[in-house]
C-alpha cells in the first residue's frame, strides 16, 4: 500500500514536470513571473540565510577551537576546518533545509490556495498551461538564486567563524586566515554549487507538486504544506549523500 502510494506519487510528479516543460504561451509573461519569483525566493530569504549562516560559522569555529585546544593539531586548522565544513556541507545543506521550510511551505500554500480558489481551473479554461506557468518560473528562479544564497551563506559562515574566534582572542587573525588559505580544493566549491542547484530543484518542484494536487479545505492545505517541507528535507538529505558519493 505504502509502496503503491509512493510509486503513484512519483509517477504523477514526473508527469507534472513533463507537462511543465513546454513552450511558453508568451515568453514575456514567463519572464516577468520568473523575475517575481527570484525576488520572492532570493531577496525574501537573504535575512534568514545571513542569520543562520553567521551562527553556524560561529558555532563550528567555537566547537572545533574547544576540541583542538589541548591537542597537537596546529590552531590555524580551525580556519581550514570551518572553511571546508561550510563549503562542503553546512552552506548548501543547512541553507536548503531552512529554505525548504520557508520557501517550500510558501510555494505549496500559494499553489494549493490557487487550486482551492479555482484559480488554476480558471487559468486552464483560459488555455494556460498551468503546470508550465505556475511551476517552471519557480524552479528556474530557485535554481538561479539559491546557489547565490548558498555562496553568501558560505562567506558569512566563514566570517562568523572569524568573529567567534579572532575577536575574543582565542585565535589570531593571521592563524585564521592561514587556515582559510591552506589545503584549498577548488572542486569543493563546484560540489557546493552542484548541491545547491540540485537541492533548489528538489525543494521547489516537490513543494509545487504538493500544492498543485491539493484537495479539500484548509486542513488539507496545511497537510500539503507540511508534506512539502518533510519530503523536501528527506530528499535533500538523500541527494546530499548521493552527491557526496558521486563527487568525492
Amino acid at each position: 500500500m505504502v509502496i503503491d502510494n509512493m510509486l503513484y506519487n512519483v509517477g504523477r510528479y514526473v508527469s507534472l514536470l513533463r507537462s511543465a516543460v513546454a513552450r511558453p504561451e508568451k515568453f514575456s509573461m514567463y519572464y516577468k513571473e520568473t523575475m517575481r519569483q527570484m525576488d520572492a525566493i532570493g531577496v525574501g530569504s537573504v535575512f534568514i540565510v545571513l542569520l543562520i549562516s553567521v551562527f553556524i560559522g560561529m558555532v563550528t569555529a567555537v566547537q572545533f577551537a574547544d576540541q583542538l585546544g589541548d591537542s597537537f593539531v596546529p590552531s590555524y586548522y580551525i580556519g581550514y576546518i570551518v572553511r571546508d565544513i561550510t563549503i562542503i556541507e553546512m552552506a548548501p545543506t543547512i541553507t536548503c533545509l531552512v529554505l525548504a521550510g520557508k520557501v517550500g511551505s510558501n510555494l505549496a500554500a500559494e499553489i494549493g490556495g490557487m487550486r482551492q480558489k479555482e484559480h488554476i481551473d480558471a487559468m486552464e479554461i483560459m488555455g494556460v498551461n498551468t503546470a508550465a506557468y505556475l511551476i517552471m518560473p519557480k524552479i528556474i528562479a530557485a535554481v538561479v538564486v539559491i546557489p547565490m544564497l548558498v555562496a553568501i551563506a558560505a562567506f558569512v559562515s566563514i566570517v562568523g567563524g572569524y568573529l567567534s574566534t579572532v575577536v575574543p582572542g582565542s585565535l589570531s587573525h593571521t592563524e585564521y586566515v592561514l587556515g582559510l588559505r591552506s589545503f584549498f580544493v577548488p572542486r569543493y566549491v563546484f560540489m557546493m554549487f552542484v548541491k545547491a542547484a540540485v537541492f533548489a530543484f528538489l525543494l521547489t518542484s516537490v513543494s509545487c507538486y504538493m500544492g498543485y494536487y491539493v484537495k479539500g479545505g484548509s486542513i488539507e492545505l496545511g497537510e500539503a504544506s507540511t508534506s512539502a517541507v518533510v519530503v523536501s528535507n528527506v530528499l535533500i538529505l538523500v541527494f546530499d549523500f548521493l552527491i557526496a558519493l558521486l563527487l568525492t
Binding site: 484559480h119 480558471a122 498551461n129
Partner: peptide, 23 residues
C-alpha cells in the same frame, strides 16, 4: 491533444461560482 484543447479553450469564457479572481 493538449495543444488543440488549449486552442479550443481560448474560445471559452467561464464564470466560476467563487469568481476565481486573482487576489
Amino acid at each position: 491533444d493538449d495543444d488543440a484543447l488549449r486552442e479550443v479553450r481560448m474560445k471559452v469564457g467561464m464564470l466560476f461560482q467563487g469568481n476565481a479572481l486573482f487576489d
